[in-house]
Simulated scan of single mutants.
Amino acid sequence: MKKYLIQFKPFLLFIVTFFFAYIVLTLLYKLYLNSFETNDVDGVTNIVGRNVEQVIQLFNCDIRIQKNQLNPYLEVWYNEKFTVRIVEGCNAISVIILFISFVIAFSGKFKTTISYILLGSLFIYILNVIRIALLTVLLYRFPEKAHILHGVLFPLIIYGLVFILWIFWINRFSKYAK
């Protein structure tokens, strides 16, 4: 048994570190979410909504984002038509937590790790805002394609880019980079 623990130590260390970071960050995020009323939209989702509105306004498009009166989400009105809603799960925090946990599990030098986490998280956030803005316009024009756009294409893009960030991290900056 000891032989296997020694042989698989790097893998086991990765698993323990990853899950520890993931659980701690998820619990902290859950505490943050619990600080809001049941019918309230959290602060990060509100900021994402404002940023989506700003991105679409850059193209002089008619956009209005408002809090739903009865439910905890933001309504996105594009060209006077209710197009999408932005819920807490749309703010990319869960994706960022996953990204951070992975980078911590394959950490490198402290300063490099922190810098990569901050820049990578910002990149994911910006990509997510652009994703929601594009989704708004595309769902307005092609509402019948909602499943493929929201359920397949855009998750593939965001998770695919996070995967590329991980590969880049492992090969360039982690303690396992050659």
Rank of each mutant, 00 (worst) to 15 (best):
G120E: 08
I126A: 07
K9V: 05
V44H: 02
K30D: 14
I6W: 13
F154Y: 02
T17R: 11
L127G: 07
S121I: 09
I93W: 04
V76N: 01
G151A: 07
L98C: 12
K111Q: 06
L156C: 02
L149D: 05
K109Q: 11
A146E: 11
L165D: 08
R141K: 15
V87W: 08
H147S: 14
S94R: 11
P143D: 05
F163A: 15
F82V: 12
Y78K: 05
E80S: 13
Y4I: 09
F8M: 03
L134W: 10
F154T: 00
E37A: 15
I167W: 08
F173I: 05
H147Y: 15
K81E: 12
F82P: 06
A92E: 02
I126N: 00
I104V: 15
I130E: 02
I86D: 00
E53G: 01
V24Q: 01
V137R: 09
V44N: 01
L118T: 09
K178P: 14
R172P: 01
N39H: 14
Y4G: 02
G108W: 07
L12D: 09
A133E: 05
L58E: 09
N128H: 11
Y22D: 00
N39K: 15
S121A: 15
E75H: 04
M1E: 13
L98M: 10
Y176E: 14
E53Q: 13
Y22F: 13
N34Y: 10
Q7Y: 14
F8V: 00
F8R: 09
I158R: 04
I96S: 02
P143L: 03
V103I: 15
L13H: 12
D40C: 04
F59D: 09
Y116C: 03
D40P: 03
K3T: 12
Y140I: 07
D40Q: 15
Q69R: 15
F154V: 00
N60S: 13
V87F: 11
S174N: 05
A133Q: 09
P10K: 03
F163K: 06
